[in-house]
Amino acid sequence: MRKLPVYILLDTSGSMYGEPIEAVKNGLQVLTSTLTSDPYALETAYLSVITFDSTAKQAVPLTEIAAFQPPQLKASGCTALGEALQLVAQCADQEVIKTTPEKKGDWKPLVFIMTDGEPTDDIRKGLEDFKSRKWGMVVACAAGAGANTNTLKQITENVVSLDTADSATIRQFFKWVSASVQANSVKVDEGKGEINSIGELPPPPPEVNIVI
């Protein structure tokens, strides 16, 4: 069966300490409970969580929705976004099945990146690795005023911003992520391929602004 991989890259640097990180944990809970009650997503979507602070690590390997458990998150350290981009490329190489003449591989992975600050490492190497792989929709989210949308625009044209990184706003973002994964799993079930433009995603809530 062809899975729809979803990689979620979360900034767990020190600036996320307190309300933001709690909101992110909550958000992951919202995401899982929404997706487990949707027959399309429950059958096709697979989730992985990659966190980045002073280093990047894969907190949850690519796991089917039914078995997914939100990881324990702690906020501390810097913002190694470049390393996270490099890591997600490596993870996808190992976890996403390629199409062969005999077998249709997985759908192209969806990537959601959420950060509240400037990267503290050099993102060029990671960006190069990331860009050399095939992705489905890549959405980068600048949470609060501290994140630089221009940096995120280098990663993907699909950048959204949250005015504040409070729990209500972050929750809305995760609801939108859930709806986007749902929409994509419906589309692939129909054999109509992955979603490729932000216009095909459900319209974001007022708290989530599309950066043009």
């Binding site: 487990t36 009650s37 949707d38 429950l42 059958e43 929705i65």
Partner: peptide, 13 residues
């Protein structure tokens, strides 16, 4: 000790 029980995918169509 949190635990989640998911519906059988077939039952929610």
């Amino acid at each position: 000790l949190p635990v989640a029980f998911n519906p059988d995918p077939r039952s929610i169509w």
